[in-house]
């Protein structure tokens, strides 16, 4: 550890350090961020969900995209694993199936950043008890 010699040094240091705190900061305001949920049940993990998740996280960190990646349990689409649910603020959640690292990058670059829909979307065909009012 070295001395911090000026305010500029302190600011630079802060920028380098804030990445490490990112996922904690993001948890403070998840509703204003793009929420990406990777299904990480046994079937998801077996089909490579872990690699997909890491790709997503790396891509988001690279450009500081305002999104947060969490993991969820089995969504039931075992035939289409790995599956990824993306919720852009103000829009309905969209579920992508058969996601690999390449599709993961596409999800970020095309859907999240530009709003383009991709192939492989699983239509929503269920209601959760939370939807029933």
């Amino acid at each position: 550890m070295n001395k911090i010699k000026s305010l500029d040094d302190l600011r630079k240091m802060k920028q380098n350090l804030e990445n490490g705190m990112n996922i904690r900061e993001k948890s403070n305001s998840p509703e204003s961020l793009v929420q990406i949920r990777v299904a990480m049940a046994t079937c998801g993990i077996a089909s490579g969900a872990r690699a997909v998740m890491n790709t997503l996280i790396e891509r988001i960190e690279k450009d500081k995209i305002p999104a947060v990646v969490t993991q969820g349990g089995c969504m039931g689409y075992c035939y289409a694993e790995p599956t990824v649910e993306v919720k852009v603020p103000g829009k309905d959640p969209v579920v992508f199936g058969y996601v690999d690292s390449k599709v993961a990058i596409d999800i970020i670059e095309k859907y999240v950043l530009q709003g383009e829909l991709l192939e492989g979307i699983i239509p929503v065909n269920y209601q959760t008890i939370n939807d029933k009012k």
Binding site: L10, K14, E18, G20, M21
Partner: peptide, 10 residues
Amino acid sequence: DEYIARDGYA
């Protein structure tokens, strides 16, 4: 470092 990351000492 975690304090500085949250604008500590700024």
